[in-house]
Design a protein around this nucleic acid. Structure first.
Length: 195
DNA sequence: ACACAGATACTCT
DNA sequence: GAGTATCTGTGTC
């Protein structure tokens, strides 16, 4: 049995969600579902800055059944269904009552490739987890993981000694948030420069 | 009751 | 690269 060395909860309590989204590039997202260990390095993230961010589900402190977990203390998962068919995985950050979150948009598949290929019904590794819906399918992340504490199985984040230098991280506007008016242009999406 | 969504996989060029 | 069908939970009316 492989030892789990997940990030401590303190990591997720940082105030600056934008900087935290950047720090997550190079960390590893892992799951162990149905006895299958799967995971890879995080290569794309987006920061969502709670009440003050028009692109955030919790903008203006909108608190509903769906957004409730964003108001909890950082370090847990926020998983929701998009377009009625894709699950998207977010990390809740900051202290209680501050609904910050980071959307994980892509990982570089590395552990349990075969399992992910079956779940995704494709052999093409570059297509296994190159999108927020795809990576949830590959890692079998679903609504049951909503609110899950990320320091433990079956869903956690690790430091595996694969730092990504600052100059290899690009900052761009976020995807699919044109409705967010002036906030749509904020450079809060982080992408590891392609190899 | 109803419009639409933080996307993907197809199908063509 | 562009165009399009897909599906249902959620939020708002």
């Amino acid at each position: 049995m492989e030892e789990i060395s997940s990030l401590q909860r303190e990591f997720y309590l940082q105030e600056d969600v934008v900087n935290l989204a950047k720090q997550l590039i190079g960390k590893w997202l892992m799951t162990c579902v149905e006895g299958k260990l799967t995971g890879g390095m995080i290569i794309e993230t987006e920061a969502y800055k709670g009440a003050e961010d028009r692109a955030c589900h919790a903008y203006n402190n909108r608190r509903t059944k769906r957004t409730e977990v964003m108001f909890h203390q950082g370090g847990i998962a926020y998983v929701y269904l998009c377009y009625g068919m894709h699950y998207l995985f977010n990390i809740v950050t900051n202290q209680e009552e501050i609904p910050h979150a980071i959307l994980i948009r892509a990982i570089s598949p590395a552990i349990g490739i075969e399992t992910m290929q079956k779940r995704r019904n494709t052999l093409r590794v570059s297509d296994l987890a190159s999108g927020p819906g795809k990576l949830c399918q590959a890692l079998k992340i679903g609504s049951t993981h909503n609110g899950h504490l990320l320091t433990q199985a079956p869903l956690w984040i690790e430091e595996r000694g694969t730092p990504v230098p600052e100059e290899e991280i690009l900052a761009t506007p976020r995807i699919g948030v044109a409705y967010a008016k002036e906030d749509a242009l904020l450079p809060w999406r982080f992408v590891k420069r392609p190899d």
